[in-house]
Computed example of a mutant assay.
Amino acid sequence: MRQRKIEHHLSRAFLLSLLFAVLFGLMAYLVHKSLVHSFDQHVISFVQGFETPQITALMKFLSWIGSGTIVLILAIISLLVFRKILMHRSEVILYVSVVLGSAILNQILKSLFHRSRPSLHRLANATGFSFPSGHSMEAVAFYGILAFILWRHTPTSWGRGLLIFFSTLMILGIGISRIYLGVHYPSDVLGGYLCSICWLALSIWHYQRSKDKEASALDEEKTKLGSPKSSI
């Protein structure tokens, strides 16, 4: 019965990653065929319609904190801190693979699509290709994996709720800031979210699968050691 529950849980996690892979593939197709122009323009007009000096300052801060250099610094600091307090070796491997893997995957995809950045009403400078958004992918990877690991060590429901709220707020804020500042299309941000959620879900699925296999093997070993030896 326990094994069936584990397999059902893992199947759901794998199907979730597969779903987001399909959604990203659909978004990539629409971008490649230039079928998202109307969607992008409407969302950009809506988001930039809230422009004020105060909001611009906030969006520049969110964009800065979601940049590759800052994410790397935050990742190293949190890794060192949590390694001493919370993380087991397997969690460290998961943490590093998700954050670094997302960054590598983003560079590969950018080189494949070669999409130019928007050029109208820029409020910040940015270089490189546009699809998918690197800030969005790294935000999902970094805050998503932190939320997952801390969730495992947070016993209270209110603590877990606060953790999910903060992570979601940062992920959405960083993505919206890239649209607001005019350096990414909304489809870039959405594509980044879909791709990174797929990678995050797949990584967590693989991690849980490995942990469940270890637990099952340990249970079998305990059962063997605890069973009475047959007399000769």
Rank of each mutant, 00 (worst) to 15 (best):
H135Y: 03
H121T: 06
H32W: 14
L72D: 06
H9C: 09
F39H: 07
L19Q: 01
K229C: 06
V189R: 00
I164V: 15
T223E: 15
L123G: 02
S133N: 04
Q208P: 00
R115W: 10
S136T: 03
S203Y: 06
S34M: 12
R122K: 13
Q3T: 14
A21I: 13
G144W: 11
L181W: 01
S210E: 14
V47M: 04
N106E: 12
I149Y: 08
N106Y: 04
R122F: 10
K213A: 13
H135S: 01
Y185E: 05
I197C: 11
W151C: 06
K84T: 15
I108W: 00
S111G: 14
S196F: 00
Y29V: 09
L190E: 09
K110P: 08
S119C: 00
K222N: 15
F61T: 13
G192S: 09
Q48H: 06
G192H: 02
E138Y: 02
K110T: 06
I164T: 15
A57C: 04
T168C: 13
S227K: 11
I6C: 14
A215P: 03
F46T: 13
E91H: 10
L30V: 07
P186D: 08
I6N: 14
F165C: 13
M1Y: 10
D188I: 02
L80G: 15
I204H: 09
A124L: 08
R89F: 09
P53M: 03
I44N: 07
L172P: 05
P118L: 04
M27S: 06
H135D: 09
H37F: 11
L86C: 04
L30D: 08
I77R: 02
I164R: 14
I197Y: 09
K211R: 15
W205A: 05
F39W: 07
A139T: 05
L112N: 06
S203M: 07
L100I: 08
L200N: 07
Y95D: 02
L94D: 12
S136C: 01
G175I: 02
A201F: 11
S210Y: 12
F61S: 12
E221G: 00
Y95F: 11
M59P: 08
I171V: 13
G25V: 03
M1A: 12
D188K: 02
A217H: 12
I55F: 13
Y207T: 10
G101S: 13
V47D: 05
I93G: 05
Y29G: 02
L123V: 02
V189M: 01
L16I: 14
L26Q: 12
L79Y: 11
K213P: 00
